[in-house]
């Protein structure tokens, strides 16, 4: 089992990867990626029971689906650092002929990715389908998914949320990145969503809240609690309260870095705040 310090070290390196990836191609989505770095690192290194070799069907292991595909930089960095493909390949992010497309896809055969995402609101349904397949296959592993909070404005989510409870899909843990930001501003100004917790509960889900979504110990504790609640007839939602742009001070608490890359000077500042740990790619 990894120590808190080890997980934090990986997270620091992942932050560097994110900044360098989006800087190199002057495009991509650093804000949400940085906000979810601790979650991804904890999920892939500690929480999920997964096999080293990638296999699309994923029978006999936990699965993860990223619904808000624009935070691909954190996904790619964590997948590479978890051994799914060489970390040097992070150099190819968004470059022609790459497997690391702007938004994740299975189309180029990148190990670790099981569905394309980018057009928002589709990942919950896919994750539920995979969860149903696990039940049919007699596989007791769990399906994890991640969704943006702004993404919940897409109606398909609520079809899926209703379906999951109605059909007692209790082998799914769907996490919502509750950072309160979307492209045009705060979620409260763009389209106020009221109580996300209240909505999930009203739809019949069990909700776990992780108040410190950028703290690996808090994530470990909350996800363990969520896992313990699977198999009890109700789908599980984790509300992960994160800070967009976490770990790079000028990117934090704002939607400004949702889809904007740092310039050379900003990159240097960001990297200085996150010293190399595992080694840059």
């Amino acid at each position: 089992m990894a120590t808190t310090q080890q997980l934090e070290n990986i997270t620091t390196q992942v932050r560097r990867d994110i900044l360098r990836m989006v800087h190199k191609v002057n495009s991509g989505h650093p804000g949400g990626s940085l906000g979810c770095a601790e979650f991804f690192v904890t999920l892939y290194n500690e929480i999920m029971d997964r096999k080293d070799d990638f296999d699309m069907d994923g029978i006999g292991e936990d699965l993860f689906f990223l619904s808000n595909g624009h935070i691909s930089p954190v996904y790619y960095s964590v997948l590479a650092r978890a051994g799914y493909f060489p970390v040097e390949e992070l150099n190819t992010f968004r470059i022609i002929n790459t497997r690391l497309q702007g938004h994740p896809t299975t189309h180029e055969g990148l190990p670790g990715v099981r569905i394309a995402s980018g057009s928002l609101g589709q990942g919950m349904s896919v994750a539920l389908g995979a969860a149903q397949a696990k039940k049919l296959n007699g596989c007791n592993h769990i399906v994890y998914s991640l969704h943006g909070d702004g993404e919940l404005q897409e109606g398909q989510n609520w079809e899926a949320i209703m379906y999951a409870a109605g059909n007692k899909v209790d082998n799914i843990i769907a996490t919502v990145d509750l950072n309160g930001q979307q492209i045009d501003g705060s979620t409260d100004t763009v389209l106020p969503m009221g109580s996300v917790k209240g909505k999930f509960e009203a739809f019949g889900w069990t909700v776990i809240e992780i108040e410190e979504g950028n703290n690996v110990d808090a994530i470990l504790k909350g996800m363990a609690e969520a896992k313990a609640l699977t198999g009890k007839g109700k789908p599980i939602c984790v509300l992960l309260k994160t800070v967009m742009g976490n770990g790079v001070d000028f990117m934090m608490h704002t939607h400004a870095w949702h889809g904007k890359a740092p310039n050379d000077e900003q990159l240097a500042i960001g990297l200085a705040q996150n010293t190399e740990t595992l080694g840059d790619y």
């Binding site: 896919v126 389908g129 397949a133 209703m162």
Partner: peptide, 28 residues
């Protein structure tokens, strides 16, 4: 009945569920 999924009047969810069911070898 175990291989049949009534999804209600929610076609978008149906397509996503079907995509997910293929992961694990099902043919939806």
């Amino acid at each position: 009945p175990e291989r049949f999924f009534q999804v209600g009047i929610a076609e978008a969810n149906m397509i996503g569920l079907a995509a997910g069911l293929t992961i694990g070898g099902k043919i939806p």
